[in-house]
Amino acid sequence: MTAPNDRDGLFDHIEPPRDAVPGSSAEPPAEPAVTPVIGHPEPVSAVTGQARHELGPLWREWPLLSCLVIFTAGIVVAGAGHWRRGAVLMGAAAVFAGVLRLVLPPKVAGLLQVRRRWFDVLAMLLGGIVMCVLSILVPPQQG
């Protein structure tokens, strides 16, 4: 018994692409999804008719960027010799990230979402609170 191949009629129901058939013309390209509207400052979706706000790829991640700015400020403060204040700032950044993950919809939360919402919120809040509490409770150096 031999194995079937392309010539046995198994693939006869598949049509070749239109541009592969000699003498046929391809269909005209479809209308773009976004069409400009005269006098409207933003592009408008051809499907919904609503304005679509286009931000750069970096600015779409504003929740993560805001948390990273606070965290980086904590690193700078800690590097300047105020480790306790810096650690509190870093913990506050984690708590802020947890609150943002809790209140923002998934489409806006962006890279703050790693796992399920409850896990992300719990991990960031718990980590931030522990960091803040430990930085406050560590006794100062004597001497």
Score class of each variant (00 low, 15 high):
residue 91 G to K: 00
residue 42 E to L: 13
residue 89 L to M: 11
residue 6 D to T: 01
residue 18 R to F: 06
residue 71 F to W: 13
residue 52 R to K: 15
residue 125 L to K: 05
residue 88 V to F: 04
residue 100 L to I: 00
residue 31 E to Q: 15
residue 1 M to Q: 15
residue 64 L to M: 10
residue 128 G to T: 01
residue 129 I to L: 08
residue 14 I to S: 10
residue 116 R to I: 01
residue 23 G to V: 00
residue 22 P to Y: 00
residue 67 C to H: 06
residue 136 I to R: 11
residue 45 S to E: 15
residue 93 A to K: 00
residue 114 V to I: 04
residue 38 I to S: 14
residue 85 R to M: 11
residue 7 R to F: 03
residue 96 F to P: 00
residue 24 S to Y: 02
residue 103 V to M: 05
residue 95 V to N: 02
residue 16 P to V: 02
residue 22 P to N: 01
residue 14 I to L: 14
residue 80 A to R: 10
residue 103 V to W: 03
residue 140 P to W: 08
residue 62 W to G: 07
residue 63 P to E: 14
residue 79 G to F: 03
residue 109 A to W: 02
residue 51 A to R: 12
residue 121 V to L: 05
residue 33 A to P: 11
residue 78 A to S: 14
residue 99 V to I: 01
residue 127 G to D: 05
residue 38 I to C: 10
residue 121 V to Y: 03
residue 140 P to C: 08
residue 52 R to T: 10
residue 45 S to F: 10
residue 11 F to D: 04
residue 25 S to F: 13
residue 98 G to K: 06
residue 108 V to N: 12
residue 26 A to P: 14
residue 39 G to V: 06
residue 43 P to A: 08
residue 41 P to I: 04
residue 116 R to C: 11
residue 92 A to S: 05
residue 122 L to W: 09
residue 12 D to V: 01
residue 98 G to Q: 06
residue 119 F to E: 11
residue 104 L to F: 00
residue 97 A to P: 09
residue 36 P to F: 07
residue 86 G to M: 04
residue 1 M to W: 14
residue 43 P to M: 07
residue 120 D to L: 05
residue 7 R to D: 06
residue 49 G to S: 08
residue 100 L to P: 02
residue 127 G to L: 03
residue 25 S to P: 10
residue 59 W to F: 15
residue 111 L to W: 02
residue 41 P to C: 09
residue 28 P to V: 11
residue 85 R to K: 10
residue 90 M to R: 00
residue 36 P to M: 07
residue 69 V to R: 01
residue 39 G to W: 09
residue 65 L to N: 12
residue 50 Q to M: 11
residue 15 E to W: 08
residue 57 P to I: 10
residue 60 R to I: 05
residue 10 L to M: 13
residue 101 R to Y: 04
residue 49 G to R: 10
residue 19 D to H: 14
residue 31 E to A: 15
residue 48 T to Q: 15
residue 81 G to M: 02
residue 83 W to I: 06
residue 118 W to T: 07
residue 9 G to L: 01
residue 5 N to F: 02
residue 41 P to M: 07
residue 58 L to T: 11
residue 143 G to Q: 02
residue 20 A to G: 14
residue 55 L to K: 14
residue 68 L to A: 11
residue 141 Q to L: 13
residue 78 A to V: 03
residue 51 A to H: 08
residue 84 R to W: 06
residue 123 A to L: 10
residue 113 Q to N: 09
residue 108 V to P: 09
residue 132 C to P: 00
residue 7 R to Y: 03
residue 110 G to R: 04
residue 108 V to L: 09
residue 137 L to C: 03
residue 76 V to P: 09
residue 12 D to R: 04
residue 18 R to Q: 13
residue 76 V to F: 11
residue 9 G to Y: 02
residue 120 D to E: 07
residue 91 G to A: 01
residue 18 R to C: 12
residue 141 Q to M: 12
